[in-house]
Design a protein around this nucleic acid. Structure first.
Lengths: 151, 151
DNA sequence: ACTCTAAATGAAAAACTTTTTCATTTAGAT
DNA sequence: ATCTAAATGAAAAAGTTTTTCATTTAGAGT
């Protein structure tokens, strides 16, 4: 079993000289526990379960740090929703379930044939990409028209 | 030579029963003329060159319509910037130049080998994706450390 | 275990963004 | 030219994010 993702986040935080405060722990834990990306306000609400007098400002500030350390990644959906999910370091992507909004992180991705084509057609030198996938998770697929609303 | 992209937008607007007002024309033209995706406020400022007493509210409202008709697409960059670019219908992506922020639309994309892998690994049934590419455009590449700042 | 201090916090205010409301104007059908 | 529903801009309201500042806290040094 690999180390929980929140441990990595905490380790990195420390490594970069940030203190591990209750507020930060609450935010990290909430993100780690959440099956789906959390919009800032939801993150705030849920994190208060772990740290009752957490302030919204602190959530902003913590996300800012986590983002700068690449420990969290914004997840945009095709429709409206926009939230954050914890991410392991390196180049990863997320698949989000349309129905229940749960996210799964995907390591690596090989879309080089496509990138080659773009390079040829546009003359751009491609330096990076951002890919988000949307689908239906196995769970929602079986329980076909079942429940499965997230918090 | 294919029809200018703004003509298509106007045609669609009409087809859906929207009036072609000065304000809307200014917004569409500004987007069409812009080499790079425009954040809402920049769009507003620039569009006022075509319609001096345009209001910001109208820019919001126009974008809302254009978005609902899929005539415009939000473009997120890895770093901060977030703006809108006119898009032809159907499934397309954008490549954005890191240096000068110019965008080029890319038609079609075949990343199915990758999608197959994700399907296998996660069990998700993939229904859609959102891909954005970042790179250096031919222009910025040749004029190596040259200028090339957009508006 | 206790002390100390820079870093972090929450509350309030300020700044900024987006949406709503409403009286006036305009596109375009007749 | 006339008419009317749709669209507009200005102002207000609602919502989001950032700044400021006095208080609290993590954790290094003792």
């Amino acid at each position: 079993m690999t180390a929980p993702i929140q441990d990595f986040a905490v380790e990195q935080l420390r490594k970069h000289g940030y203190k591990l405060t209750q507020a930060r722990w609450a935010v990290i834990l909430t993100l780690a526990e959440s099956p789906s990306p959390l919009a800032i306000n939801d993150l705030y609400q849920q994190a208060r379960a772990h740290a009752p007098d957490l302030g919204l400002v602190t959530v902003y500030r913590t996300l800012e740090i986590l983002d700068s350390l690449k420990l969290v990644r914004p997840v945009h959906l095709m429709e409206d929703y926009h939230g954050y999910a914890l991410a392991t370091p390196g180049h990863t992507h997320h698949v989000v379930c349309q129905r229940c909004k749960s996210v799964v992180e995907i390591e690596g991705c090989d879309i080089s044939p496509f990138l080659d084509r773009v390079r040829e057609e546009t003359g751009f030198h491609i330096t990076g990409h951002w890919l988000e996938l949307e689908g239906i998770c196995p769970n929602c697929r079986t329980k076909d028209s079942g429940r499965a609303e997230p918090a």
